[in-house]
Design a protein around this nucleic acid. Structure first.
Lengths: 134, 134
DNA sequence: TGTGGGGCTTCCCACCATGGGAAGGTCAAG
DNA sequence: CTTGACCTTCCCATGGTGGGAAGCCCCACA
C-alpha cells in the first residue's frame, strides 16, 4: 500500500506519516524497489491508533508511551490509566484557564455598550486603569 | 528606562519586547547613544496593555487591532466589542473541544481497572476495536 | 513506444509565541 | 581599571501541521 492509500485508510495525512517516521514515533517503513514506502494492515492499524490518540488530545510523546504499552502484551492497565489520568488533569487545567478568560471577557463585554461611542470598559480593563479582581 | 526595567515594570519579558518591536506590534523604541533601547511610561503602559491582552488569550493580531482602537480616540466601542465577542466564541469552541476530550477519556478511565492486568478499555478505544459513540 | 497526469521522494519554509544561549559592546560600582 | 550585570544582534528549538519545489516513478491510454 502506498503512503497515500495508507493516509486515506488511517486518517493521518501523508505528510504526518513521514513526520511520525522521522521523529521515531513509528518504525521506518519498508520500501519498494523504487523507494516508495510500503504499508500493510498492521501499519494502518497503528496509524489509526495514533490518530485516535491525537483526537483525544494526547501529545506525540504520550502517544509514544501508549504505543509501547499497546505493543507490550504484558502491560499493566494501571500504567495506561496513569497516563490517561495525567492527560485528563492537563486538559482540565487548560479548560479552567480558558474558562477564566472567557468569564472575564464576558463580564467586560456585558458592560460595554457596543455602539458608536468610544467609551469602552474592555479597553479600560486592558489599559489597567480600573482595578480588577480576577 | 532600560529594556530590563521596562520588562519588570510591564510584565513582558525583554525577549518579547524585542519580538513585538520586530513584528511591528509596537513602534521601534528610541535608542540611547550607545544603542540601548530607551522606554518611558507611555511605552510601559502599552506593554502592560499587551500583556493583559495576552493573559486574556488574545492573539497578537487581535491585540494589534485592539491597540489601534485604543489609540483611536474616536473609536466606536462596538468595534472593540465585536473583537471581544469573536474571541469569546473562539475560546468557547476550544473549551468545548477540550471538554469533549476530557469527558471521553474520563469515561474510558472509569472503565479501566487500573491494576496489574493488561486488559484496558483505554487502549481498546485507541485501537478502534470497540465501536465508540462519541 | 511515447506521453501525460498523478503519486512518490526529499528538502526547505511558515506558522505562533516563547525561551535559550553565544559573542561582543556598555555601564556603574568598587 | 576591573568586575559583574546589563545590553545588543543572531541563530536555534519548541509542537504539530501544512505548503510547495524539484525530480523520479508508475500506469493507462493512444
Amino acid at each position: 500500500m502506498n503512503i497515500g492509500q495508507a493516509a486515506k485508510a488511517s486518517g493521518v495525512s501523508a505528510k504526518m506519516i513521514r513526520y511520525y517516521e522521522q521523529i521515531g514515533l513509528i518504525p521506518k517503513a519498508d520500501r519498494t524497489l523504487s523507494g516508495y514506502r510500503d504499508y500493510g494492515e498492521a501499519e494502518v492499524h497503528m496509524l489509526r491508533f495514533i490518530r485516535r490518540g491525537r483526537d483525544l488530545g494526547f501529545s506525540v510523546a504520550e502517544i509514544s508511551d501508549l504505543l509501547s504499552l499497546w505493543r507490550d502484551g504484558s502491560r499493566q492497565s494501571g500504567d495506561v490509566k496513569r497516563i490517561a489520568l495525567g492527560h485528563i488533569a492537563g486538559l482540565n487545567e487548560k479548560i479552567a484557564r480558558l474558562q477564566q478568560m472567557a468569564d472575564t471577557l464576558q463580564t467586560l463585554v456585558s458592560c460595554c455598550s457596543g455602539d458608536h461611542r468610544p467609551d469602552c470598559p474592555i479597553l479600560a480593563d486592558l489599559e489597567g486603569s480600573a482595578e480588577r479582581k480576577a
